[in-house]
Amino acid sequence: MSILLSDISKNFGAFTALNHINLEVPEGELVALLGPSGCGKTTLLRIIAGLEHTDKGRVLINGDDKTDQNVSQRGIGFVFQHYALFRHMTVFENVAFGLRVKPKRDRPSNEIITKKVHALLDLVQLDWLHNRYPDQLSGGQRQRIALARALAVEPSVLLLDEPFGALDASVRKDLRQWLRNLHHELNVTSIFVTHDQEEAMEVASQVVVLNHGQIEQQGSPSDIYDHPANAFVSRFIGQTNVFDLDEHDADWLQTAGLLNPTQEGKIAHVRPHDIIIEKSDANHAAPATLKDWQHLGALIRLELVKNGSNGSTAPVFAEMPNDQFKQLELARGDKINLKIRQAHWFH
């Protein structure tokens, strides 16, 4: 079901955690709240859940004003970063909890609960663990049980707080894909919080970038990557080379083929893969020197030093496919010609 947040503000003492947040999440979306730590993303999620009160603003789920409703009446599913499984209950009882605490008239019979719990455990592919206790499970298993537990009450929206934050890198990769597929299957409106831009881009259908308690940009992953609304988003999503024209980089950029065509701004952000590399034959006037490179799997990241620039001495990073790099037969200290395909301009 759809979620509508209107004008949400929250202060902790003198600290402004959220500042006039307006956000609409259409039904069935899988939305990532993305931002650096301390940007207010978890607070916003907890406000939607009702685990935290707002100072100002309203929370509407499917058109109903839930702002003053207790968390236990909101009908949401919440998955905690550290799972928060009930440690004294078996996996089965953990998942059954939400059904067992329903008021008598709504509570399903024992047979229905048993059937439903096993179906949910099948869904997360862990039915064989139903008799275990949480401390006998691995992190990834615990997280999947926590998800099954949240789904048991058939929540109208599913909220996940850094769902993969406490897991190993390899488990995290598997679970991301799995969560995406599960969302396709269930189609329940979901919001998850993350500080990992790669995770947000990979899993979510919509990404909301937050910083300092404000929404910087909302859009599909490709929107956000290709058309960053401001310098913060551009820098936060993926790697970016920053050229500040005030720092006398303008001349150097011209040699690299990048002109400032309009008066859009004075700061150019260039993605590493938008820089095309050529080995320079002439030993003079090449704009850059190859300092070092790193293997990133299919890609190679080259670290370049600018020549003849009075501006910043920060290295420039370029990326190219592995085999292309091999063809160029580059060595450390080689002079490099480069061509910048495109840049995003900011003030």
């Binding site: 685990l51 968390v71 236990s72 009446q73 909890f97 605490v101």
Partner: peptide, 8 residues
Amino acid sequence: EAALSLGA
């Protein structure tokens, strides 16, 4: 908090 969110 988990128990509360599950409706208890």
